[in-house]
Simulated scan of single mutants.
Amino acid sequence: MTETTPNEDSEPRPAEMRAESFHAVREAHRNELAEDYVELIAELIAQFGEARPVDIAARMGVTPPTVAKVLNRLAREGLVARAKYRSVFLTPEGATLAEACLRRHEIVVRFLVRLGLDPETAEKDAEGIEHHVSERTLDLFRTFADGD
Rank of each mutant, 00 (worst) to 15 (best):
M1C: 03
T2S: 14
T4Y: 01
P6N: 13
P6M: 13
P6V: 14
D9F: 14
S10M: 15
R13W: 11
F22W: 09
R26S: 10
R26M: 08
N31L: 14
L33P: 01
A34N: 02
V38D: 04
E39I: 06
L40S: 01
E43N: 12
I45L: 07
G49F: 03
P53G: 11
V54S: 11
D55S: 13
I56N: 00
I56L: 02
A58V: 08
R59T: 07
M60L: 15
T63V: 07
P64E: 00
T66K: 05
V67A: 07
A68N: 12
K69Q: 15
V70G: 03
E77H: 08
L79G: 03
R82S: 06
A83W: 11
K84M: 05
S87K: 04
S87R: 03
S87V: 00
V88F: 03
F89H: 11
L97F: 05
A98S: 09
A98I: 04
A100K: 13
A100W: 05
R104G: 04
E106M: 11
I107S: 02
I107C: 01
R110E: 12
L112G: 04
L115P: 05
L115K: 15
A122H: 07
E123H: 15
K124C: 03
D125Y: 04
A126V: 10
E127N: 12
G128Y: 01
E135S: 02
L140C: 08
L140D: 09
R142C: 01
F144C: 06
